[in-house]
């Protein structure tokens, strides 16, 4: 756990703009923490370096600003997520098409899952 925590602290130092308090990163919603943790894990796997990540994220933010993003900090992890999606495709881990297919499958899984039950992805969710 402390190794993970160290890796996370390292990320917070290496990547500019991460919303944080005195102890480290803070998140506005659980999904933001997931997106952060995914990047920390992929970095640990050697998929990218932090300077490479920071540069890709900066491009994503610049692009979003050009499209009118107010950059109030509320959208930081949306850019983070878009960067993840772009990098995993660029690195050949998966493709935008596959991401969309899984996104749609999760949507079907949520729709068929009664409230309060764990949402689980099954093969049938991929054909709808």
């Amino acid at each position: 756990m402390s190794a993970d925590r160290n890796a996370a602290q390292q990320a917070a130092h290496a990547v500019p703009g991460i919303p944080r308090d005195g102890d480290g990163p803070v998140f506005r919603a659980p999904w933001e923490a997931h997106a952060f943790a995914i990047a920390v894990s992929l970095h640990a796997r050697g998929l990218f370096t932090w300077p490479e990540w920071a540069s890709a994220l900066a491009q994503e933010i610049t692009r979003a600003q050009a499209e009118g993003d107010a950059d109030t900090g509320e959208t930081y992890y949306l850019h983070w997520l878009a960067t993840l999606e772009r990098l995993v495709a660029e690195k050949g881990v998966t493709s935008a098409t596959t991401l969309t297919r899984y996104r749609d499958a999760w949507d079907r899984a949520a729709d068929r899952t009664p409230h309060g039950r764990p949402i689980e992805l099954t093969q049938s969710d991929f054909s709808g």
Partner: peptide
Amino acid sequence: TELRVRALESIL
């Protein structure tokens, strides 16, 4: 957004 995060997580 949650759908996109879950998609990434399950693929990875």
